[in-house]
Each structure stands twice: as structure tokens, then as C-alpha cells.
Design a protein around this nucleic acid. Structure first.
Length: 446
RNA sequence: CGGGGCGUAGCGCAGCCUGGUAGCGCAUCGGUUUUGGGAACCGAAGGCCGCCGGUUCGAAUCCGGCCGCCCCGACCA
């Protein structure tokens, strides 16, 4: 993409309303534009990142066996009355009346819909297990939206819903999602830790929140340092292998990790040696929850067992705040010059800076390099504006592209261009061909 | 929902107290000189001063009402 043809309204000054770093940087980098309180338009750069995150979430969900669907944003109040939540939900739910006077709502979540859909088609133990998910916009009329996209009223969320015959099956489904989440967050370049959440209506321990550690996090977290070091890495995972899933579950949830909501200082001190106790701040980016028959019973989601009995299915729900992740990644990865994108979600894989726009030799070298990068399958933002070098560098750093190729008359005399890492700033001089090869290698497999 | 604050050019702000031709910086447009870290100079364009009403010869400014937005707290993905 040539910058002169793109739509990238970057701001040199920080808009007054933005207080936290991700909000400031998203506005300055031209990623979002506020439409009203807690509601944002996604500008091209922000939209690209959002879509990349969404794609990774999709891939990892499906890899774990979840099946994608898409349910509507507008739901009928009747459905919610049947689960008893229409009244219970309160003013956070945006209620709408259509032209016929029918009561509707803009969905804050989809448990009712998915359960209704399930029970309409699945009546036998043979239909189980199932895990259906979608990635859809939701609306919660927060009293006080803030922090830009991190706590908007409209937000993009992945929610998955599992259906199993019994607690044992539900546990396997739960573990599949836990492992899928670990993989997802690792791919997004995040250090996310599952923390024990408030136990569900059934009790037990199958409820975890995933928090990423960031100084600006909204909640205080207490955890064992060993958890921070854990990584799935290249480990091969068989999502059909319940024993392996359980082993990973045990490994990741065996140590103390809680938010201030559930923190127990005495237990913390008893379980974690002083040297390994970490107190930090975290941002919640996902939660997984086993809720037994809470929704299946009132909504009549039952199956017939092998023995011919009708039983309510055991279900779980699993959310990831997709739009929130854009902000969360920035909170976890930035410096005083701007954003530092992980390679997996960067809006462009590299930036190309022409230091002397209008100079025939430099222009030609940039065009040639731009063509080679495209041919290698790389997404490149070519800054072909007629502005000074400093302005181009500042823009590239602000928008956070992980790699910058710099082309100027000085290097071209010796046949080289510069490749600079956004993180750390290390620069190496390479031939254009070698630079393309380096980038292609960096992005192989991502 | 309690407390506080702000709405003036695309963005950041001054002007309001003490009523009298609407300003500054950045960005934008034209020109000249520049050109490896957000250039300098000259010129230009851009405003229902949030909205409605009141007071006044005259309102961005004073008064009343409304709307919008932000911050702290409680609450939340």
C-alpha cells in the first residue's frame, strides 16, 4: 500500500479525552474514531488489526473443534423472558421496540439464542458433544464507558458454547477451550494467565479469567512467578486427547493466580514461596465458564440418553474480547514513540521509507523493492509522501510496524538498504534482495 | 448512579471574570528555500463560539433550560 493512496489520519498531538496509552495511541495512529460515548468507527489501520486478531481467534477455535456460526445482534425479548434474564439483566441491556411494538434488544450476549438453536436440532446423546461459537458485535450500555475501545459499549466478542452429556464431557470441552485460549494468546504475542474466577452456580473450579499482565491493567493480580514463565511453545496438541488436555490444565491452573476479586492473602502466602510471589496489574481478555444446566434447564435443552432418559445438557460458555484485545495488545506492547505490534497482528508487515522522494534513483530503488516485497507475499506500507525523513520515521514508529526498510541515496551508493527492528531499534545494512529474504523468513509460518 | 469538569476551525487551546469587528499553535492549500529524525519564510483558506430561550442598542462573554463529551468513584468483557 502506498501511503499517499491510503487513509491514515495520524495525529501529532494527543486528543484531550484520551487518558490511557492504548486509547491515545489508537487515536494518534488513526485506528479509530469515536462516534459517540463508547462507540467507535474502525479506520483502515485499526480495522486491519481487528481482522487479524479475529482471524487468529477463528483458527484456534476451529482447531480445538468449535464450529463457527453467526447469530444476530438484535434478539427478541421473549427469548430472554424464558430464561428469566429479561428483567434480571437491568439497564445495561439496550432495549428496542420495533414498529409493531414488539420488544427487542441489542444482544449483550447469546446464551439464550444458542441454547434455543441447539435444542431445536439436537435431541439425542448422539448429537453430543457440540461446541458452537461466533464472533459478533455486542452492546452493553455501560454506565460509564471509558478507555477507548477497552471498555466501549459496542464491542466485538467471540463467544463459544459447549454442550455435553455430563460433567465429564463438559470438563473435556472446558479444557479444550482453555488450551485453545493459551494458544490464541501466545500467537497474539501476549502473556495471558488463567486465573481462578468466582465459582459458577454449580460451584467447583471450572471458571477462569484470562488476564494479560500490563502496568495499566484494571485489576490487581496475585500470582506465582512460575506461571509467567510457562509457554506451550511448539508443543503438539491433540484436542481429542482428554488426558493431555487435563495435564495442560493442571499445569496452568495448579499454581496460585487470582485477581483482587477472589484473592486470599493467607492462601497466597501458604501456596507460593515469597521469592515467587508476583503482584501486578492485569487486563481481562477472556473468560471460560462451565455452568452446568443453568440455561439448558429453563430453555428445555435436553437430550435423550442411551437409556432413553431425557436429561438437560451440560453447557459452558467461553468468551474472548476481540476488540478489547486491540487495546490490550497496545497496553502490553508500546514505547514512548508509539505502538510496537507483534508480527502476528501488525497491520503491515513492514514499512518502506523513501528518504528522498523525487530523486530518480531513490524512487526507482523503492519501487523495485516494493515490487519484490509484494512478490514475496509481504504486506508493506510504502511511505511515498514528499515529506522529510524525520516525519516518515515518526509515523512508522507511531503506527508500530515491526520492521522498517529505509532507502536513501547514501546506502544506495553501496547497494544497500537498512532494515530496522521497531522493538529495540537494531539496524542492519543489507542488499535489497537480502532484506526481502530476511523479512520473508521472519514471517514464514505466521 | 454520586462527585467534578469541559463544549470556540480537522486537532490542541486562549478569549468569558469586566458585553462592542473571533484569536493562537499544529494540520490544510499556493509559493520560495530546504531535505538521514515531526523544516523555515511569505501568502491563503477554513467558525450557526453545542442547541433553545431570556436580558441588552449589542451576547462566545451575563441568566435559565436542554443536549453532548470527559475525569474520579461504585460497576463491568
Amino acid at each position: 500500500m502506498r501511503l499517499t493512496r491510503y487513509f491514515l489520519p495520524v495525529l501529532k498531538e494527543t486528543p484531550a479525552e484520551a487518558k490511557i496509552v492504548s486509547h491515545r495511541l489508537m487515536l494518534r495512529a488513526g485506528m479509530i474514531r469515536q462516534a459517540s460515548a463508547g462507540i467507535y468507527s474502525w479506520l483502515p489501520l485499526g480495522y486491519k488489526v481487528l481482522r487479524k486478531i479475529e482471524a487468529i481467534v477463528h483458527q484456534e477455535q476451529q482447531r480445538a473443534g468449535a464450529i463457527p456460526v453467526l447469530m444476530p445482534t438484535i434478539q427478541s425479548a421473549d427469548l430472554w423472558r424464558r430464561s428469566g434474564r429479561y428483567e434480571a439483566y437491568g439497564p445495561e441491556m439496550l432495549r428496542i421496540t420495533d414498529r409493531h411494538g414488539r420488544e427487542m434488544l441489542y444482544g449483550p450476549t447469546n446464551e439464550e439464542q444458542i441454547t434455543e438453536m441447539f435444542q431445536a436440532y439436537c435431541g439425542s446423546w448422539r448429537d453430543l458433544p457440540k461446541n458452537l461459537y461466533h464472533i459478533q458485535w455486542k452492546f452493553r450500555d455501560e454506565v460509564r464507558p471509558r478507555f477507548g475501545i477497552m471498555r466501549g459499549r459496542e464491542f466485538l466478542m467471540k463467544d463459544a458454547y459447549s454442550f455435553d452429556l455430563d460433567r465429564e464431557g463438559a470438563t473435556r470441552s472446558y479444557n479444550q477451550m482453555l488450551v485453545a485460549y493459551l494458544r490464541t494468546f501466545e500467537r497474539l504475542g501476549l502473556k495471558a494467565v488463567p486465573m481462578r474466577a468466582e465459582s459458577g452456580p454449580i460451584g467447583g473450579d471450572l471458571a477462569h479469567e484470562f488476564l494479560i499482565l500490563a502496568e495499566t491493567g484494571e485489576s490487581e493480580v496475585f500470582l506465582d512467578r512460575d506461571l509467567v514463565e510457562l509457554s506451550l511453545g511448539e508443543r503438539a496438541i491433540d484436542y481429542d486427547d482428554a488426558a493431555q488436555l487435563q495435564e495442560i490444565f493442571d499445569q496452568w491452573t495448579g499454581s496460585y493466580a487470582r485477581t483482587d476479586d477472589t484473592h486470599d492473602q493467607a492462601l497466597f502466602e501458604a501456596q507460593v514461596p515469597e521469592a515467587r510471589r508476583v503482584t501486578a496489574r492485569g487486563i481481562e481478555v477472556g473468560h471460560i465458564f462451565y455452568f452446568g444446566t443453568k440455561y439448558s434447564e429453563p430453555l428445555g435443552a435436553t437430550v435423550t440418553t442411551r437409556e432413553g432418559d431425557k436429561v438437560a445438557v451440560h453447557s459452558g460458555s467461553y468468551g474472548i474480547g476481540v476488540s478489547r484485545l486491540v487495546g490490550a495488545i497496545i497496553e502490553a506492547s508500546h514505547d514512548d514513540k508509539g505502538i510496537v505490534w507483534p508480527e502476528s497482528v501488525t497491520p503491515f508487515q513492514a514499512g518502506l521509507v523513501n528518504l528522498k522522494q523525487g530523486d530518480a534513483a531513490t524512487d526507482a530503488a523503492c519501487e523495485a523493492l516494493y515490487g519484490k516485497l509484494a512478490a514475496a507475499g509481504l504486506e508493506v506500507l510504502y511511505d511515498d509522501r514528499d515529506v522529510r525523513a524525520g516525519a516518515k520515521f515518526a509515523t512508522m514508529e507511531l503506527i508500530g510496524l515491526p520492521w522498517r526498510l529505509t532507502v536513501g541515496p547514501r546506502g544506495l551508493k553501496s547497494g544497500t538498504v537498512e532494515l530496522t527492528a521497531r522493538r529495540g531499534g537494531a539496524t542492519e545494512e543489507l542488499s535489497p534482495e537480502a532484506a526481502v529474504a530476511r523479512l520473508a523468513q521472519i514471517y514464514r509460518g505466521l
